[in-house]
Amino acid sequence: MSGTKEGVTTMRDPDVRNESFFAVVVRKLRRNPIAIVCLVTLIVIAGAAIFAPYVAPADPNRPNLPARLSGPSAEHWFGTDHYGRDVLSRTIHGARVSLTVGIVAVAFGAAIGVVLGLLAGYVGGRVDTIVSRLIDTMLAFPLLLLALTLIVVLGSNVTNVILATGIATIPQFARVVRGSVLSVRELEYVHATRALGARGLRTVVKHVLPNVTAPIIVMATIYTANVIILEANLGFLGFGVQPPEASWGSIVNDGRRYLAQAPWVSVFPSIAITVTVLALNLFGDALRDAMDPRLRS
C-alpha cells in the first residue's frame, strides 16, 4: 500500500500527514474494545478451522450407529448426530467449509466486481452503459435465487457453492465501486493529475483504487458474513455442500428434523454461525468507523 503515502492521505485527513492511513486505522481499532474482542474471536475460529484435523477430537465423518443422537457428554461435548458422528468435530470441520466458502467467494466476487466497477466508473461512456446494464440485470435476480440457480446448473459441491455465491456478490461490489469511482473522479486532484497528462490506468491504480479500498474492505467483511448466511439458506433449501462434507449450514439443516429429540445437533453449529457472523459484522462496523475521517474521536 505504498500508494497511500503520497497525496491521497492528505485528501483524507489533513491532520495526520505523517502517519499512513492504515496506521491510523490500526491505532483507532486498538482503542476499540469491541473490535479487539471480535478480532480475537475470528482468529480463534479461523485457527480452529485451519488446524481442524488437530483440534477436532474425532473423525467428523465416521458414523457410529449405536451412539446415534446421544446428548452432550464428556466423550462428545456437543453430542452426536443421526449417524452417531461427533457434532463438535463436525462443527470444527464445518468451520473450514463455511469460512472457505465465505472468504473465497467474497474474494472472487470482489475481484471481479472491483474490476467491473472501476471500468464502468472510470472509463465511462459505452463501457459504463454495458456494465451498468449487466449489474442491473444481475441485481434484478434475488441473491439467493441467483446462487440457487447457479448451483442447480453446476451441481452442488464446495467449489460450485463458492462460485455461485461469489458470482452472486459481483454486482453488489461493482455497484459500490462504480459509485465511489464516480465521486472520486470529480475530485479536483484527479482532474489535476489528468490535466498533467497521467494515463488512465495509472491514474486508476494510483489515485482511485486506494480511495475505494476502505469501502471495499468494509463491504468484504460484511459480505463474508452474508455469504456464510447465504450458504446456510441454500442448505435449508437442499442446495448446500455435498454430504458427507458439511458446512455449518448443512449441519443445522441436518439437525432440523431432530429438534425435539436432539436439539444439540442444530444448536451448536447455529451458535457458531451467529458468533462468527456477529463478529464479522461488528468488526466491519468498527473498521468503517476507523476508516471514516469524519468520525475521529
Partner: peptide, 14 residues
C-alpha cells in the same frame, strides 16, 4: 447494536 446485529447473524430459517 448487538441485539440488532443478531438478526443479521442468523439465517432466516433459524
Amino acid at each position: 447494536s448487538g441485539i440488532a446485529t443478531v438478526g443479521v447473524a442468523m439465517p432466516v430459517f433459524t
